[in-house]
Amino acid sequence: MSASVLAPPAAGAARWPSLPPRWRAATARAGAGIAGLLVLVLLWWAGIALLTAPGSIARAFGPVEGAAALARLLAEGEVLIHAGVSLRRVLVGLGAALLIGVPLGLALGAWRGLERATGPAFQFLRMISPLSWMPIAVMAFGVGDAPVHVLLGFAAVWPVMLNTAAGVRALDPRWIMLARSLAASRRETLWRVVLPGVLGHVLTGVRLAIGILWVVLVPCEMLGVSAGLGYAILDARDRLAYAELTALVLLVGALGFALDAAARALCRRRGG
């Protein structure tokens, strides 16, 4: 026998069986991401420690104080209610964007004349910040959830609509011809050919919409509502509870990261 066969296996190989390449790649990506987050936290801590005086108010915005306040808020449980309210508003806004944006995107992608007629108007409206509509939304719908839902739907409808239209234009014309040759009705062509074909583009639009929704949500919740993460941040500021404010900002970032990760996983699953 050769020496390589008789040689004992390496200690690491004996303890840890070889992972599949896909798992190794995922583990490497996760490790790199965690390292990047640790560097960010270290820079945050160093900035607070080096640039602020001991005992100053700015020390309340440090990562240690923020993490301690976040643990306390999670233990008390009230912040979970605010997070649930915010997530519900995001789902309502996203649902409204899908109900409006997908049919509009299908129509724009199918009829170029409609796209040419409405394109300038849609691009004009798309470039207006949703937050600039806040006073008008409050005057039209009053205070409460209604204006927040309207603003979130307005913010999210554009990526959904534009990506759906791009998906329709990217469809292989031979699929439509095949459906027609099989005497498929328009409804059957829509449900069995068009919608499955544009689903990947719609999911991409949903991921972009979720990012926009989460950014727009917090300032929307600072006006005329009594619950939500934006309201909680404003309340912490008014109470001068700066460590809680930092904790809420961390929670907003963590939830937004989780939502984006879920949307990315859905897109990868559809693509794979």
Rank of each mutant, 00 (worst) to 15 (best):
G113M: 01
G211C: 07
Y242P: 00
P9H: 09
L248W: 06
R270W: 14
L217P: 02
R186Y: 00
G105R: 03
L178K: 00
L171G: 04
F124I: 09
L80W: 06
G55H: 08
A25W: 11
I212S: 14
V160L: 03
L99Q: 03
G66D: 05
A236Q: 07
E78A: 15
E65Q: 15
V160F: 01
L91K: 01
G211P: 07
L74T: 10
L91F: 04
A262Q: 11
L151E: 05
V85P: 00
W191R: 15
G253D: 10
M222W: 00
P135L: 03
T27S: 12
G230W: 00
R264D: 11
W214G: 08
G256I: 02
W111F: 14
L38C: 15
L131D: 09
A10Q: 13
G105I: 04
L171R: 05
R264I: 09
P17T: 06
A184K: 07
L74N: 06
R237M: 09
M134H: 01
L182N: 08
M127Q: 12
G105T: 05
V41M: 12
R88M: 05
V215Y: 06
A146S: 13
L190T: 04
F154P: 10
L195M: 12
W111V: 14
M161I: 02
R239E: 12
D172G: 08
G66F: 04
W133P: 09
G224D: 06
V85E: 04
A26F: 08
P130E: 10
R270V: 05
L255E: 04
D145S: 15
W23H: 13
L203E: 04
V138G: 07
L19P: 07
L6K: 13
E78V: 08
A137D: 06
G228N: 07
G12R: 12
V138Q: 08
V5R: 13
L131N: 10
L70W: 05
L213T: 07
A49Y: 04
E115K: 05
W111Y: 13
A183Q: 08
G271L: 13
E76C: 03
R270Y: 10
A146H: 02
G47K: 00
V5C: 02
V198T: 05
E115H: 09
W214R: 08
D172V: 02
A227K: 09
L178T: 11
L6R: 15
G153P: 03
L114K: 06
P219A: 11
